[in-house]
């Protein structure tokens, strides 16, 4: 099948590539760009392990074609930290033990980034509701919620 040229900015860096039309955004990020922080879990847009930022809104990158992301500004977990300085949400997950096996963590954190942009001071219930698209199969939700609440406090002051 004829490949399609795309240009995608990922974590501030522009990439040109030719991709098969059926290539998923998550495969482009992981296999073409080597950004394996984004995970593939259910591959059916249920679990949220593949959540990335696309033009300022979170998307499940297993349910988006790379060609649909042509021209887009993508943010992944790799782009959050500033050198050795963790993003406040990453730091809050570290401080509050917001992960067990860690597989869902990148998606959880990307979802939390958008959640706190849209609602800087969420209640615990709002955090839980906001995580409806992210599944932690270790069932470690208590500390994930705690982490996001701590991050909100840190960012919002």
């Amino acid at each position: 099948m004829e490949k399609i040229p795309i240009q995608v900015t990922v974590n501030g860096q522009s990439h040109q590539a030719e991709v098969e039309p059926r290539m998923l955004l998550v495969h482009f990020l992981r296999e073409e760009l080597g950004l394996t922080g984004t995970k593939i879990g259910c591959d059916t847009s249920q679990c949220g392990a593949c959540v990335v930022m696309m033009n300022g809104a979170t998307v499940k990158s297993c349910t988006c074609l790379a060609v649909q992301a042509d021209g887009a500004d993508i943010g992944t977990i790799e782009g959050l930290a500033n050198g050795n300085d963790l993003h406040p949400i990453q730091e809050a997950f570290w401080d509050n033990h917001g992960l067990q096996c860690g597989y869902c963590t990148a998606g959880m954190i990307m979802t939390a980034v958008e959640m706190l942009e849209r609602n800087p001071h969420p209640s615990a219930d709002e955090v839980r509701a906001g995580l409806e698209g992210n599944i932690c199969r270790c069932t470690g939700y208590q500390n994930i919620v705690k982490s996001i609440l701590a991050a909100a406090e840190k960012i919002g002051g």
């Binding site: 847009s45 949220g48 809104a57 979170t58 998307v59 499940k60 906001g130």
Partner: peptide, 9 residues
């Protein structure tokens, strides 16, 4: 409908 990411797209 769905979840945040589904509603975004």
């Amino acid at each position: 409908i769905g979840d945040t990411q589904v509603r975004n797209r």
